[in-house]
Simulated scan of single mutants.
Amino acid sequence: MYWDRSDLELYERWLATPRGAYAFAQECRLIEKLTACWPRRGRTLLEIGCGPGMFLEFFHRAGFDVTGCDASPVMVAASRHRLGERVECSVGNAMHLPYDPDSFDYVALLTVLEYLDDPELALREAARVARRGVIVGYVNAFSLYRFSARRHRLLAKAKWYTPWAMHRMLREALGLAPVREASVLPFPECAWRDGPPLWGLGKMVLPLPVGAYCVCAADLTAEPPLTPLLSFAGAQPTKSF
């Protein structure tokens, strides 16, 4: 699907609302949790279908050297405007990426497979250009949010996936690569806030398949994962002699 300027404006208006900002923050928290064991310094990450660069900016702040790719020139221009010289961004087709094999350490596809004619081919392309890992985020067809999301024009165009359908596609594209997965936003959209009646329960990171937004992180190498970044905060100092 080709996204035009009206789609961009609609998406940015949604992100500017309290619920949109809340949802985006929880999605970023989930991605951070599942990629915490990935090294950052000097590591490259390609986001396929980068849109206006919201997640590219998040990955850049997390420490990755980021590159964006999107089929829409409007979205590429928006990403360049948002990040400036911090990002390389170009027009490209997710199903025929303009990159050599193993061009990047990591590849991200966040809410993009829902809009592609051949999502399995896009996953295979992601695996082709990634050396170390692939992360996929998608809206969950097996969630309460789907009933209220029908009124959102952009999501009305999306193909929603169940976790089981996504597992199948990942297995076919990535083989037996180990996958970490979880979800956020388990309640309807009306509960996406910090106040009553649910007091921020939407922030809970939960096992699949209950959340509106699911993320799968696959490790493509046999190297053991590093200690998650957040674990260092609670580590006790050791003595040196």
Rank of each mutant, 00 (worst) to 15 (best):
V205A: 08
S148C: 08
R168I: 00
H152P: 08
F104I: 07
K203R: 15
L123I: 01
E181Y: 06
G200P: 12
M166I: 01
R193D: 14
A165Q: 11
P186A: 04
Y115W: 08
F147Q: 07
S148M: 11
L170N: 00
R180H: 02
Y161F: 10
E172H: 13
T111G: 12
P178C: 07
G133N: 03
R168W: 01
E181M: 11
G195R: 14
L176T: 12
V112G: 02
L176R: 13
V179Q: 02
M166S: 02
E181L: 07
L185N: 05
F147D: 05
V139N: 03
P163I: 00
R153E: 14
K157N: 12
P119S: 04
A177N: 05
L116T: 01
D194M: 10
D118L: 09
T111N: 14
L185D: 03
V107G: 05
G137C: 09
G175Q: 04
L198P: 09
N140G: 07
Y145W: 15
N140L: 06
W199D: 09
N140D: 07
V205S: 05
Y106V: 08
E114C: 06
P196H: 06
E172M: 13
D194R: 13
L176W: 09
L198K: 12
S148K: 10
R132M: 10
G202N: 08
R153Y: 15
M169K: 01
R128K: 11
L109Q: 05
Y145G: 15
L144I: 09
R153H: 14
P196S: 11
R128E: 06
A173W: 00
R171H: 12
F142I: 13
P178T: 06
M204Q: 13
L110M: 15
R151L: 13
W164Y: 12
V112E: 03
A158E: 06
V136M: 02
W199M: 11
V139E: 04
R153S: 14
G200H: 06
G195P: 08
A127R: 07
W160C: 05
P197G: 15
Y115T: 06
G133W: 00
G137F: 03
A156P: 09
R131Q: 12
P197V: 13
W160T: 08
L113R: 01
W164K: 09
K203I: 09
R132L: 09
L121D: 04
D117C: 13
K159L: 11
V184I: 14
F147K: 09
E120L: 15
A173C: 07
A122I: 03
L185G: 04
H167G: 05
